[in-house]
């Protein structure tokens, strides 16, 4: 009896310490490699550093004024926004359409769902290389099929005007299946009762049902998809690396590619840090605005 009492008491008293012991390994890693670097990147933005030498030179705001006055930086920022605008709405709508299509189907459901999901598990570099082949000017299958309709070959990845669109098509293909899975889970969590009551209330027709019931109840899933797809587009790098290397003439150069190129190819770590800070602010602002617009944090 006394032993019971003591042990219950013991666990109450030591709970804080016990909790932190359990949390220690993960928190150590996250503190050192996520939280601390967030501050360190702010700090490094004020220095000139080549990433190799032990010494750094304090340059104040030079990195920031440098990027503010460079026309190259503004076009890279614009490219990132354009890439987001081209990929996010399309991937959102396609994911939703596929989920709505699969929702009430019984036959082949798992097979079809897997087919749409396969692009998500293919590595982005590998997928990028495959799409380079599909988009190939002389012997790619896309131009091959177009030639059957006597369309002249299109320079998908080699032209400044089309390269961003081509990379976006590949990205939409790669991300839509992920969004579909989130939307499907959202749809399946809507209780059937709502649709039964709407029969009573005289709400008929699929569009009305979608507008009055499905869409509002799907909101947590929609917010999640919107937030994750935007973050995903801002951190994209691999498809650019594999498909265009930022070209032609910088037309597909986006922020993360710029960070990598400046920091790890030209060894301008301070400047790359300043660009990282811009990207960090951008990601935090957009995510914050998305949560606000969607009315709170219910989607998180």
């Amino acid at each position: 009896m006394t032993r019971k009492k003591r042990s219950v008491k013991y666990y109450k008293h030591s709970s804080s310490l016990a909790a932190w012991m359990f949390l220690l390994p993960a928190m150590a890693v996250i503190s050192v490699f996520v939280v601390y670097p967030m501050f360190k990147v702010l700090y490094l933005g004020f220095f000139k550093w080549n990433g190799l030498s032990a010494s750094m030179e304090y340059t104040g705001l030079a990195n920031y004024t440098g990027l503010f006055y460079s026309s190259g930086f503004w076009s890279i920022l614009w490219n990132s926004v354009l890439f987001t605008l081209l990929t996010v709405p399309a991937s959102f709508v396609l994911g939703l359409a596929l989920a709505l299509g699969l929702w009430k189907t019984a036959i082949l459901k798992n097979v079809l769902r897997s087919a749409f999901f396969v692009p998500v598990v293919v590595s982005t570099v590998g997928a990028g290389i495959v799409w380079v082949w599909l988009f190939n000017y002389n012997s790619g299958i896309i131009n091959g099929i177009l030639s059957l309709f006597s369309v002249k070959p299109v320079n998908w990845l080699g032209s400044e005007k089309l390269a961003m669109l081509s990379v976006s098509v590949m990205t939409i293909w790669k991300t839509a299946g992920y969004n579909m899975v989130i939307f499907l889970a959202g749809l399946h969590s809507i209780p059937e009762v709502y649709y039964e009551t709407c029969l009573v209330d005289g709400v008929t027709g699929n569009w009305k049902k979608f507008y009055y019931i499905t869409w509002p109840l799907l909101r947590p899933a929609s917010v999640f998809v919107a937030v994750t797809t935007v973050i995903f587009s801002f951190r994209s790098f691999e498809q650019i690396y594999a498909m265009t290397r930022g070209g032609p003439v910088g037309s597909t150069k986006i922020l993360v590619y710029h960070i990598w190129e400046q920091g790890f190819r030209f060894y301008r770590m301070g400047y790359a840090s300043a660009v990282s800070v811009v990207l960090l602010v951008l990601v935090l602002t957009v995510t914050f605005v998305q949560f606000k617009l969607s009315g709170g944090r219910d989607g998180a």
Binding site: S16, A19, I30, V32, F33, L44, M269, S273, S276, L279
Partner: peptide, 29 residues
């Protein structure tokens, strides 16, 4: 335990921050 809610918020926030943004400091560390 004390600070649990704060910790949960911090953890949630780390999910938003892309590793790519932290590339330079992580390399430096």
């Amino acid at each position: 335990f004390k600070g649990k809610n704060t910790l949960l918020m911090v953890l949630l926030a780390t999910l938003i921050i892309p590793f790519q943004v932290l590339a330079v400091p992580v390399f430096a560390i």
